[in-house]
Each structure stands twice: as structure tokens, then as C-alpha cells.
């Protein structure tokens, strides 16, 4: 079995910001940050599942696994999570 742990973010612990509201949509979800007033569409339900799993997961890799995302697709999802991190939608937290 091959493990793609190339991106350090996969081993980090993150969580959805307390300033963000996620509204379910047919295409995935709409995320609104009340602090910086940024609006972001999450265009895949699996990404929404992963974001929701972040807070209860020890690592990002754990959250992606729980969301049922194949390892081959992790790089694309990590890229999306980094985009969410850039706009403070998700925040790094201390490992539990």
C-alpha cells in the first residue's frame, strides 16, 4: 500500500473557524466568514464532509479518510484546504 504523505498539511490538525457558517447547497456548501466577510463555494460534497470532519480528526489525512476521499485525490483536496486556510475559513489547531 502506498501512502502519499508528501504534503506536510496532511499530518497537521486543523478545524473550521468559529467565525464561519457553512450552508448546505445542492453543489456542496456555501461558506461565509463573518470576520473578513469572505464568501467561498465548496463545490464537492466530499470536501464539505472533510471540512466538517477536521475538528474531530487528529490530522487532515484522517479527515480526508473519514470523508471517503481516495488517496489519489488527496493532493487536489489539500490544495483546496490550503485555499480555505488562506482566507481563514479553516484554522490550524494544536494536535489533540
Amino acid at each position: 500500500m502506498t501512502t502519499l504523505m508528501a504534503d506536510p498539511m496532511l499530518a497537521e490538525a486543523w478545524t473550521l473557524s468559529g467565525s464561519v457558517a457553512l450552508r448546505p447547497e445542492p453543489f456542496g456548501a456555501l461558506a461565509y466568514h463573518f470576520g473578513n466577510r469572505k464568501l467561498t463555494f465548496l463545490k464537492k460534497q466530499q470536501l464539505v464532509d472533510a471540512v466538517n470532519a477536521l475538528g474531530d480528526s487528529k490530522t487532515v489525512a484522517d479527515a480526508l479518510t473519514r470523508a471517503g476521499i481516495p488517496e489519489a485525490q488527496w493532493p487536489a483536496y489539500v490544495k483546496a484546504l490550503r485555499g480555505l486556510a488562506t482566507s481563514d475559513m479553516i484554522l490550524e489547531r494544536k494536535p489533540s
Partner: peptide, 10 residues
């Protein structure tokens, strides 16, 4: 997988 939208212009 994500699309950022600017709402300030509204």
C-alpha cells in the same frame, strides 16, 4: 473544488 466570491462589490 472551491470558488471564492467577492461580495464587497454588491
Amino acid at each position: 473544488l472551491i470558488e471564492e466570491v467577492s461580495i464587497d462589490g454588491m
